[in-house]
Design a protein around this nucleic acid. Structure first.
Lengths: 336, 336
DNA sequence: TTGTATGCGTTATCAT
DNA sequence: ATGATAACGCATACAA
């Protein structure tokens, strides 16, 4: 079923059908109805590929997610969900590309095949090949996270340096004098993962400012690693009574590890994190944390992208969020 | 950059370039090289929409996910991840459509716009408008889950009736004489959600067979509901010492609720579930559960779909999985 | 208000 | 082994 067939049955030309559909040209009420009847009868829908070819746009956006998708964190999952919902709301389809490094086939198909009108890229690294690729392909995009050269792109991010700093201050305020940072995985941070690097900075600055002892640990993004990082902290710095973290996935393991060591949260050890709100609430005990508004961010990313697609040559906008810390039950005054 | 430009610069016709690219017709080594050089130089990639239009296929599959995407369970997330990975592996792109009922715009775009060569539909209900739609549109698809008329479609599913039955038998074997089923949400089950209905059947059959007391409860897919269902169970049937569930999302709340009531797992109450393996392991205490191999299922769904796209008129294949229960730490002999 | 003709970038069917 | 050319289904500039 194509537009020609509709035109034939309605006794009009193809262009009239097309215009009746798009409304880009006035069509008399009579013929409009006649056409609509035929369309309804055969339930005709224009072919997306043909339309994309003729129109030069696909009405689709790409969403570039981390490749090891099975290990998406709650926060990442919330981003994906929010992006998909927000896109659907403005009648945009979402094409998923699981790609991290460069030269990824699905990423390349998306970009150079012009399968999408624009893209949202998750888990941006400080230097990111995908960003370079998108820039020189001149495809509109927005990052969730930003590169070192932040001015060249459109992005939305969370101010991890400040947030982890606030975690430290909160712990210091509670009287903790030795704290540890449980950062993301060694591989991720080594590859220049922005939040990891910035969290480390913020942590260093804050402990220096407060004059307390601070020890930064890298930790794999899984429960087992969380467990073992606790063992390392206990062995190397048993005086630590406060933990700041942005590693959601490790936290259940951290919790188990503390339990194994006979330590209770928050009586013996306080934990303060940066995490998705929903997740922080459901943690046990409910986690004192800077709640990252992942859903809102996903929706805003779509907004930014839509803007950018409409006006690709304006200067890139940025949004940097610094959500407040929500006090819950995982932090308490330092034990005496 | 289009194929014509490549042809011009290489001094050949467009068709020759096309054939050099697809290999569907022999091309002399000399011209092939010449063409390839031009292609590499301009890094030309064929336009996806044009190709789709000419070829009649999009090299894209649709993935229909539940609409309230923010609340995807771990198991659902694992499906999505597995599908995306498996699809990427065979150079298929994935278009996401968050749609539950019928008449969903993104679903309709996908189907009638012929944006995809086939689709994978998650969270199938016993009677499912999307399935009907796909059937009469004659678009190849496979369901994760099956309808009442299972023979008409291609699907892969988990045998919830049997698995929940096994949970009950496991509890009975441990001496529990009063058990409860924590099912999925009232809305979901009321709308004919297969796993919910089949779990209830399996539960009923098993408690009858063992001659123990069994109480089936519906429960929203969230922690708060989990908490309140425990309160209800405690109030109405305080003798219950065993819980069988397929409601992952409620389980943290169930756990909290039991704690609030001063009950410990598994000392006072045993919990046995049907859940994603990863999640069951990370639960506290590690959950005795039938581990749903979500990743494998996602990959198999893609395989089935690829098969079906290649041969749409063969009789539909089905895969019904019954993974064994993995004993972990959430189940123990009934308290005396 | 409506119709005609052309272009979008490929693939594929004829020819040669 | 290669070239011309007609689809593919729609949008739109140009005519009437």
């Amino acid at each position: 079923m194509n537009i020609g067939e509709i035109a034939r049955r309605a006794g009009v030309s193809r262009s009239t059908v097309s215009y009746a559909l798009t409304g880009k040209r006035p069509v008399s009420e009579a013929t409009r109805r006649r056409i609509q009847d035929v369309i309804d009868e055969l339930d005709y829908k224009p072919n997306a590929a043909a339309r994309a070819l003729a129109e030069g746009r696909t009405r689709t956006i790409g969403l570039v997610i981390p490749p090891a998708a099975a290990r998406l964190t709650h926060m990442q999952l919330d981003f994906v969900a929010a992006v998909v919902e927000a896109a659907a709301k403005v009648d945009l389809d979402v094409l998923l590309s699981p790609s991290g490094g460069d030269h990824d086939r699905s990423f390349e198909r998306m970009i150079s095949g012009r399968r999408v009108d624009g893209a949202i890229v998750m888990e941006i690294r400080v230097q990111d090949a995908r960003v370079e690729r998108l820039l020189d392909e001149e495809l509109p995009f927005v990052g969730i996270g930003h590169t070192a050269r932040a001015d060249r792109m459109c992005w939305i991010d969370v101010d991890y340096a400040t947030l982890i700093g606030r975690c430290v201050h909160h712990l210091a305020d509670l009287g903790h004098s030795a704290v540890a940072l449980v950062n993301r995985s060694p591989e991720l941070v080594a590859s220049g993962y922005g939040p990891g690097l910035r969290a480390a900075e913020g942590f260093g600055a804050a402990v220096a400012e407060r004059g307390i002892a601070g020890y930064a640990y890298l930790c794999g993004d899984d429960a087992a690693s969380g467990r073992s990082v606790v063992e390392r902290i206990r062995a190397e710095h048993p005086e630590v009574t406060g933990i700041a973290t942005l590693n959601e996935a490790a936290l259940p393991g951290v919790q188990h590890g503390l339990e194994d060591a006979g330590l209770r949260v928050p009586r013996d050890v306080s934990i303060v994190g940066v995490a998705a709100a929903q997740w922080a609430q459901d943690f046990r005990p409910p986690l004192t944390a800077a709640d990252v508004p992942a859903q809102q961010m996903g929706a805003q990313a779509v907004e930014l992208l839509v803007e950018r697609i409409a006006a690709p040559d304006t200067i890139p906008r940025h949004i940097l969020l610094t959500p407040p810390i929500s006090l819950r039950s995982s932090s308490a005054p330092a034990p005496r």
